[in-house]
């Protein structure tokens, strides 16, 4: 392993400073900074179009920031992408499995990409597929899976290379309450047993209240509130995180949301 750029004697696994990103004249992320301790469950919240996904893309090397610096597991996301990529796992907002391959093949493909030794591959895949209750379905092609099964498989895949941080971009979107509960159970078990740091975004604020240690709320590209759920509720004088969220971000339907809804509608039409 390469030497870390940042002497990470501090307990922070992720450090973001003065991060900005614009698309033409639109400033999607505007000078945000935050730090996450190893083992924390960090919820990154915001209305649609607030800059959550753009931030996650920058943190996970998919998008080049215009300004700012990111250190993940002590490695600079800008200068040492390969080491950073080994340090995190990700479950994207939209499915990212190969639907023509089986569950096992999707896992095996990931194992090779992440250079997991050949001898260990089968056992690791088996353990993780058993963890998400998909071992029996390992030979089935993914296109025959339900939304919940796909999500479980993506979580198992994201954990295959033992990442330090797991990014989850709206991991329970569109799933039934039972599946949502199961998914959070797998994740929280890993957080407790292995100290895995969780960075997630969601619109289900009840989930955040149950599981997050720390929360940051982003709106119009800027972080407008941060702290524990209780701290935020107290500061906003609100009974629930949802109330606090509405107080902070307002009641209006965003133009961005309308645009995103339209874009998703178009995508769905194209996919179908």
């Amino acid at each position: 392993m390469k030497e870390k750029e940042k002497n990470n004697t501090s307990q922070y696994i992720l450090e973001v400073s003065n991060l900005s990103k614009s698309f033409k004249k639109f400033k999607a992320v505007d000078n945000i900074s935050f730090k996450i301790k190893a083992g924390e469950v960090f919820a990154f919240l915001g209305p649609n179009g607030a800059g959550k996904s753009t931030t996650i893309k920058m943190l996970t090397t998919l998008l080049q920031p215009d300004e700012g610096e990111i250190f993940l597991n002590g490695f600079s996301v800008l200068k040492n992408k390969a080491e950073v990529r080994k340090s995190f796992g990700i479950v994207f907002q939209d499915p990212s499995l190969d639907s023509e391959l089986s569950a096992y093949e999707n896992m095996y493909f990931h194992a090779v990409l992440y250079k997991i030794p050949k001898k260990e591959r089968q056992l690791k895949i088996k353990n993780l597929l058993e963890m998400v209750d998909l071992w029996e379905k390992r030979k089935q092609v993914v296109k025959k899976f339900s939304g919940g099964m796909k999500r479980r498989l993506e979580i198992a895949r994201g954990l295959l290379h033992h990442p330090k941080v797991l990014f989850l971009d709206e991991p329970t979107l569109g799933l039934d309450p039972q599946t949502r509960q199961h998914i959070w159970q797998y994740i929280m078990n890993l957080n407790k047993s292995e100290g895995l740091t969780i960075f997630f975004s969601t619109h289900y604020l009840d989930e955040v209240e149950k599981i997050a240690n720390k929360v940051a709320i982003i709106d119009k590209g800027r972080i407008i509130e941060r702290g524990s759920v209780e701290e935020i509720k107290n500061r906003q004088n609100s009974k629930s995180l949802e109330d606090a969220f509405i107080k902070l971000t307002g009641n209006n339907l965003r133009n961005d949301e309308k645009a995103e809804t339209f874009s998703r509608f178009r995508q769905t039409i194209r996919k179908s």
Partner: peptide, 14 residues
Amino acid sequence: KQFGFLKETLVAPV
């Protein structure tokens, strides 16, 4: 790109 699989390869350390 459209169905998301490309992201899986683009975030891999290769």
